[in-house]
Structure formats: structure tokens, C-alpha cells
């Protein structure tokens, strides 16, 4: 059910951005999906496909969902590493005092659109 609310927001943002760019038709939308959000990509893709009809500009758009890995910055050694596995720790020195710097966001990144010639 979570994925349905997210799909609604993605469509709203994409449609607004398309209108802002003077687009007639959106062909492709790229969405970054942070791993930490535990979004079910299949379910999100399903709702995007089902609900895009409500937006004429998006009715034929393809949505690319790109999973974004979690990256952490170490407060001990300062390195930024990709987080692998469950626990949060620095990939360089093993310290557990880390801050998440990527992989915790869901973002409409960019789009390919068609605009009419003027």
C-alpha cells in the first residue's frame, strides 16, 4: 500500500516537471530508489503503470527504477564506502560510527520528453 502512495507522488512530480518544461509527452522517467527505504520495486512499477493513465502527458511513459546502494561516511577514518550486508559499519576500517550519505532517498531524477516545435 505504501508503494501506491509513492507512485502517486512520483506521477505528480513528473507531471509538474513535464509541464514546467513545456513537454507534450514524457517518454521515460528515471527514479532513484534508495535501498534503505525497502520499497518493493515490482509493486511500485505496477502502480506507476496502472496510474499513469490519469496524466495525459505520462500515459505512455516508461519508468526506470534504479536501486541506489547505501553509502556511509565513517566518522573515525573519514572514508565513504558502499554498505554491504545488514549492519552499518565502515567498509574501510570497520568502525560502527558512520553516517548514511546515500541510499535513503526516493527521488525523481530526470526525464526524456517531447516538446512541440515553436
Amino acid at each position: 500500500m505504501h508503494e501506491m502512495s509513492l507512485a502517486e507522488e512520483i506521477l505528480r512530480i513528473a507531471d509538474e516537471a513535464a509541464a514546467g518544461a513545456g513537454a507534450r509527452e514524457v517518454q521515460r522517467v528515471r527514479v532513484g530508489v534508495g535501498w534503505l527505504l525497502q520499497v518493493e520495486a515490482e509493486s511500485l512499477a505496477f502502480y506507476l503503470g496502472a496510474m499513469r493513465q490519469d496524466y495525459p502527458r505520462l500515459a505512455a511513459a516508461a519508468f526506470t527504477l534504479e536501486e541506489e546502494a547505501v553509502r556511509v561516511r565513517c566518522r573515525v577514518c573519514g572514508q565513504e564506502t558502499v554498505q554491504e550486508g545488514w549492519g552499518f559499519s565502515c567498509g574501510a576500517c570497520g568502525a560502527r560510527d558512520v553516517a548514511v550519505v546515500a541510499g535513503d532517498r526516493l527521488e525523481v531524477q530526470d526525464m526524456e520528453v517531447l516538446t512541440d516545435d515553436v
Binding site: L6, E9, I10, R12, I13, A14, A17, A18, A21, A23, R24, Q27, V31, R105, L106, E107, V108, Q109, D110, M111, E112, V113, L114, T115, D116, D117
Partner: peptide, 20 residues
């Protein structure tokens, strides 16, 4: 340029949670 229309790349970079 295409036939009577442009292909355009649009950077968006908006957080899906922005309204909330």
C-alpha cells in the same frame, strides 16, 4: 531536432517525499 518536435532531457532531482 525531430519532425515537428524536440527530444529533450529534463533534470528533475526532486524528493518523492517533498509534499509530506
Amino acid at each position: 531536432k525531430g519532425e515537428g518536435h524536440h527530444h529533450q532531457h529534463v533534470a528533475v532531482h526532486r524528493n518523492v517525499m517533498e509534499a509530506n
